[in-house]
Amino acid sequence: MSRSAPRPPRRPAAVLFDCDGVLADSEALVNRLVAEERTARGWRMTAAEARETFLGMALPDMVPAIEARTGPLPPGWGRGLSERIARALREEVAPVPGAIAAVRAVAAAGIPIACASNSARLELTAKLERLGLAPLFGARVLSFEDVPRPKPAGDLYRAAAAACGADPAACVAVEDSLLGVRAALAAGCGRVLGLADEAGAALLAGLGAEPLPAMAALPGLLGLDSPEGEPGC
């Protein structure tokens, strides 16, 4: 008796993308700038240490950790750091391999897309404009400044789903960090794809994320490269 072919995945009502590490290969650049700023203010830090300390965190969540180590931050500190990062992003940031083609494939299939990031709005805008993705997302771009609570709370993904006119349970979220996966699950996203190498994938899978080995694999996981895939709902 022959085994029947696996059923193609149901196309989602919307696809909700994180930005850093999913669309923009920006983490090394941002970590370097944060490390330089911290070192200049008395907390000697390498880019690797900045990544380990602040990965996935929004600026408001970084402040208590920094002030506990170096004392009160000056007024306007967050805005100043965001402006410096945004300037560098507009000049240097590159896409995550396969990300631009994957986003275009989802949009071309008629599936609504949104971007939900713990970045400040200024930085997020700079990244999407630099990558040429801003027109595809339109107004469906959410930063931590647009919701009451940043990731790992589910506010950003609930707002992103609402911007697409979709129930989170019918959406796919694409993430690369523990904080982001927790946020997507807290929002009730129906599927959470974890973009990571083999070692990182195990950590994300431990929270319930499905492995996404590369952004180029996203259309296939959504059933977009199969004529038998179901239409979006």
Rank of each mutant, 00 (worst) to 15 (best):
A94T: 14
P95T: 03
V96I: 15
V96G: 07
P97G: 07
P97V: 08
P97Y: 10
A99N: 05
A99M: 06
I100F: 04
A107W: 05
A107E: 12
G110E: 09
A114D: 07
C115L: 14
S117C: 11
N118Y: 08
S119G: 15
S119A: 15
S119R: 11
A120H: 14
L122N: 00
L124K: 04
L131E: 09
G132N: 11
L133Y: 08
A134I: 01
A134D: 14
P135V: 01
A139Y: 08
A139W: 09
R140E: 04
L142F: 13
E145N: 11
E145L: 07
P150T: 00
A153T: 07
G154E: 10
G154I: 14
L156E: 03
L156K: 01
A159H: 02
A162T: 06
A163L: 10
C164K: 07
A166S: 11
A169Q: 10
E175L: 02
S177N: 03
G180I: 07
V181Q: 12
L185P: 12
A187R: 07
C189H: 06
G190P: 03
L193I: 13
G194S: 09
L195H: 15
A196D: 08
A201E: 07
A201G: 15
L203N: 13
L207F: 10
G208E: 10
G208L: 07
A209F: 09
E210W: 01
P211F: 04
P211S: 06
L212P: 03
A214Q: 15
M215D: 06
A216L: 06
A216I: 02
A217C: 00
G220V: 05
G220K: 00
